[in-house]
Design a protein around this nucleic acid. Structure first.
Lengths: 347, 347
DNA sequence: CTGAAAGCGCTTACAG
DNA sequence: CTGAAAGCGCTTACAG
């Protein structure tokens, strides 16, 4: 079961002994430090190879203050499996793969939104990882800034705009996403367009709403507040939101822009439950381009965002920050594009 | 950006100083060791609290050989984002959440299938984590046994049957899954039933196939090898598989059991491309019960397996193994149940 | 170019 | 009940 004792761990001491040098010399040789005779270095390397030596990263970390571990922090409601958005899973996989390829380790930390400050600060102070990638935080900017100021390890915040100059971020052009989605609906003849995804204080929601409004303004469509419905960006909020929408508005909209794809999935459920059909009664567009949208009851038109690339950039950025050679801009904003399927009808 | 120097880390030394005791006493007090005067312990705890002391897990790990980190190992083809099965993502989240709740950390390790042995052994030897949870390994039993014998940390293998007595595992009753799926098709009047999901040497595939065959035998349906199609359990293999099936069989089957849901998704794509319809031309059943199957073009009937619970059990098992108090059986087999939707037609 | 010493932050025997 | 010492596996000045 667990043959913990079977095999003695090989340490640098044994390597040094086999190579016939001091431990410090072995260390210098293995780390390619200047001032080690080539032949000595070779001897040490061969000994290490022969013994199958792998340095203990924590012993290294203790002295170098670098253990090559990076935490991906996921915050969400305090229920068992709160990360239900496949878009975030793409990011997680992309970050992990990129880190692993560069000899870094990825840690996953799932924390409750309601104790985010405490959990993040504790995580950083524990020194368990060398950097933080905040993937799903919704903490307001000012509080998040306070949190990140408190901690002493590098961090990068994903998919949030509007953070202050000192906080590294990689995000989407969320306003443009909202604009593109809404404009596409308008181009298809829609004028009564609802937005399900209002979430005050949360950057992506506010920006997507701003893009929605901008597209409306450009098309001379009057803004109707009854067409703007709150949603928390989890699936059920789409279902609840569309019910609320159909109940509260005086003129039923002909199209809905859902804040993201899983909200759109909820909207789809709600529309079916109401006995309406997409896109004949209501057109629908989402955001994210999660997998298999083409296999849905109605294949969903959406705004596709480059989550894999975003994760890759995030991984490279934190590695650079840790190693002190990060050359990338403090803020990166990535562009999205529409992926047309058949949930929007031209009217 | 990275105010690494701003804040001095607080160590047990400062705690001891503030409490006016020796470092060893502080350690004993903090760890609740016997033989510390209550008043001393209180002094130390207060000092720790005041200074916001968090012990360095790696310094602890170095002496205790327990850093409370567990690696979830995902192997797959050597492409960027190979874990595409939402069922595995449920497991990952469930494991992580459970570990985090118990003060453990979860590490994600994505390795290439073609260098699995090397990567696993190296991971274990690096002492970077205290235990391994192998989630997606397909390495044949004998090789996997050899690998796990080589390593000196506890490990548990998920969703694999037939491993030897000494290797901890938590799995599904895959034969029963195959049996239930096939039996349900038979009960609905089908006799020409295909299985897309043959993958020799991979436990889940072999067992599901065995269950399929058993259901056939019980119903006196002759086994037709041209109805058994290989698939690698990624989505595209379903698409390829159903094409192959329709090309090679003399009598078109009336129903297909796909090895898992994402294969079923591929099959669905293929059937649509061939101009056929589900369930009118061909009935389809999958396995896993991944999210949102009810929103597909044809809502997919499937075998639901308890992945969240499985992940929870796996986390508890490795924690127990690490702490030396694991009471759970070395092998756990979980039961699955059918979830009826509308992709199977009664004929 | 090499090695002995100190130290990273902790815990564990062991004196007292 | 408390504290000084040794040690976990490493690296980094610093003598020589």
């Amino acid at each position: 079961m667990c043959n913990r004792e079977l095999e003695q761990l090989v340490t640098i001491k044994e390597v040094a002994k086999l190579a016939g040098v001091a431990v410090s010399t072995a260390s210098n040789a293995l780390n390619g430090k200047y001032g080690v005779k080539a032949s000595t270095q070779k001897k040490v390397q061969e000994a290490a190879k022969k013994l199958n030596y792998i340095p203990n990263p924590y012993a290294q970390g203790l002295v170098k203050h670098n253990n090559r571990i990076i935490s991906m922090v996921l915050s969400g409601p305090n229920s068992m499996n709160f990360i239900t958005n496949p878009a975030f899973e793409e990011i997680i996989k992309s970050v992990t793969r990129t880190l692993n390829r560069h000899g870094y380790q990825a840690m996953l930390n799932m924390i409750s939104s309601d104790e985010e400050e405490e959990a993040i600060v504790k995580l950083a102070q524990s020194q368990i990882s060398n950097a933080l990638i905040l993937i799903t935080t919704r903490t307001p900017d000012d509080i998040l800034e306070r949190i990140l100021e408190k901690i002493s390890i590098p961090s990068v915040v994903l998919i949030r705009n509007a953070l202050n100059k000192d906080i590294a971020s990689i995000s989407l052009d969320n306003k443009d996403c909202g604009y593109k989605a809404t404009k596409y609906l308008i181009e298809n003849g829609h004028r009564r367009i609802a937005f399900i995804g209002e979430l005050p204080g949360v950057s992506i929601a506010e920006e997507r709403l701003a893009g929605y409004r901008q597209a409306l303004v450009e098309a001379n469509i009057e803004f109707d507040p009854s067409y703007v419905i709150p949603a928390d960006y989890y699936q059920e909020s789409g279902l609840i939101g569309v019910r609320q929408l159909l109940r509260q508005c005086s003129h039923k909209p002909t199209a809905i822009f859902a804040g993201n794809d899983i909200v759109a999935l909820g909207v789809m459920e709600g529309i079916v439950q109401e006995g309406l059909s997409i896109p004949d009664d209501i057109s629908l567009i989402g955001h994210d381009n999660i997998p298999n949208l083409h296999l849905l009851k109605v294949s969903l038109t959406t705004i596709a965002s480059p989550y894999v690339e975003l994760g890759r950039l995030a991984a490279h950025k934190v590695m650079g920050m840790i190693e002190g050679n990060d050359q990338t801009p403090i803020h990166t904003v990535m562009q999205s594009e529409i992926r047309v399927r058949s949930s929007v009808k031209s009217i």
